[in-house]
Computed example of a mutant assay.
Amino acid sequence: MDQMSAIPLSGVPFPKSEYERRQQKVLQAVTSAGLDALLVTALGHARYLTGYYGGGTYFGPFPLILAPGHAPTYVVREYEVQTVRAYSCVSEIVPYTQERDFAKVCGDVLRGYGLHNKRVGLELRCWNITPSDVYRLEAELPEMRVIDATELVGSVAAVKSELELEAMRTAMAMTEVAVRKFQEALRIGVTETEMSAAMHCAVKSAGGEDLRLVSLAFGERTKLAHGLPADNPINCNEPAVTEIGGMKSGYAAGLVRTAVIGQNAEVESLVGLSNEALDTAIEMIKPGVEAEEVHATVRKVIERSGRPQAFRNKAGYQTGIHWSERGNMDLVPGVKQILKAGMTLHMPIMLFGEKGHIIGCSDHLVVTELGAKSLSDAPRMLYRV
């Protein structure tokens, strides 16, 4: 019996063939970029390619080495080898014992693959690799040319397979459970902490894996971007804003929703403007549109309203594993990346009020050949109690 098969509740969430498909797509992108190999260090990108969730990587970089003609190779902390083997589809695993050993061990693998004097891509703008790691690796292999390949895996992961889309639909179903609880439980005096507990409980009761709570704030605390729950009660005529996402196999499907107890003219106006900007952007999203065009469309709607300073964020971003990852596509000025069918986008249009409250809503979209389609049936309009 395989040693790993005896460990209960381990394994990868998708068939091995799905990971092999992803790896081959990335290797094609490596060749197209004129690279000889790629070291994947971003947790989201590594999980996308292997299934491994990334526990223990705080210790030091766990690079996944992808090179044409070689099996995918994971260079990991020796303490984590069994866990990486149990939760990934990678069979070639090379351990290092202490953090200071990383550069030598990784350098030995690259040297053994004949990459010591080649063009090797690193995810230089992503988390989980430091300048010190790069300097030490360059000292180990002085003839190797390090190339910034931060966006390479993200460009492949942007287009989802049907298996991924199904995971995101399942995640969205749990997001909608949490949204309904957010609305049902809202009453004068309830605190953010109590609301958070209620939403998590509702998702667990519905059979969900987990709920990612990015923000939850009431009243004056809606001036905080990504504010975490506190023992802060909501009062009459105050807003409540939450950004939440159900989870499935590492995939998250986020939504932003706003509610108000009583009346609040500014909150109502900002949510209305947020929806107008979203509707306008959704109408123009289709394959072939540049990412920056979506942001420009949202910006024009906000500017026409006479409140250009209200919009201080990006129009949206590519989604998938780990909610978002540095190196993935943003819908911001200067990004020329072309939208393709199968991409998923979270578009939180968050607007600043005159007194600093951050109010808005979002939609989570999949790009299809016919345009954009929402993954959610949850109404976007302001919820009133």
Rank of each mutant, 00 (worst) to 15 (best):
L211E: 00
A259C: 13
S17T: 15
G34L: 08
S305Y: 01
V289W: 00
L49I: 11
E325N: 15
S88H: 13
R257M: 15
M4G: 08
A178C: 09
V156R: 00
H322P: 05
L141T: 01
L228E: 13
G34A: 04
S274Q: 03
C236D: 15
G60H: 03
M350H: 02
E123Q: 15
V159A: 06
G207I: 06
E151N: 12
D108G: 08
G288H: 04
G371Y: 03
Y52D: 05
V84S: 01
L255V: 04
R384N: 13
E194N: 08
S215N: 08
K373G: 03
P15R: 11
D231M: 11
V260Y: 02
G154W: 00
A225T: 07
Q28S: 14
S324L: 08
H226M: 15
Y135K: 14
L27H: 01
K373L: 10
A103G: 10
S376Q: 07
G208D: 05
V267S: 02
Y251Q: 06
P13R: 03
P63V: 02
P72K: 05
L165A: 08
P233T: 11
Y135Q: 14
L39P: 01
T344R: 06
N237P: 08
A173P: 07
G219L: 09
Y52W: 15
G262P: 13
C361R: 02
K223Q: 11
E192Q: 14
E192C: 14
Q318K: 10
E354I: 06
C361H: 00
D2T: 11
A157S: 12
M144Q: 00
L43Q: 06
G334T: 11
V366T: 13
G107D: 04
K286L: 04
A253E: 07
Q98I: 08
A225R: 09
A240M: 09
Y52F: 15
K223T: 06
C126G: 06
L211P: 01
I302N: 00
E151Y: 02
R169E: 08
C126I: 01
V12W: 15
A277L: 03
A253Y: 01
T170Q: 14
H322Q: 14
V179G: 09
M329Q: 07
K336R: 14
H200D: 09
D330Y: 04
A139V: 14
E20S: 12
I261L: 15
E78F: 06
S376T: 11
A103N: 04
D330P: 02
E143S: 09
P239Y: 07
T222I: 09
F218W: 12
I349Y: 00
A33R: 01
S305R: 04
E220Q: 11
M1I: 11
K104N: 14
V289N: 04
A178F: 02
E78T: 07
P379F: 06
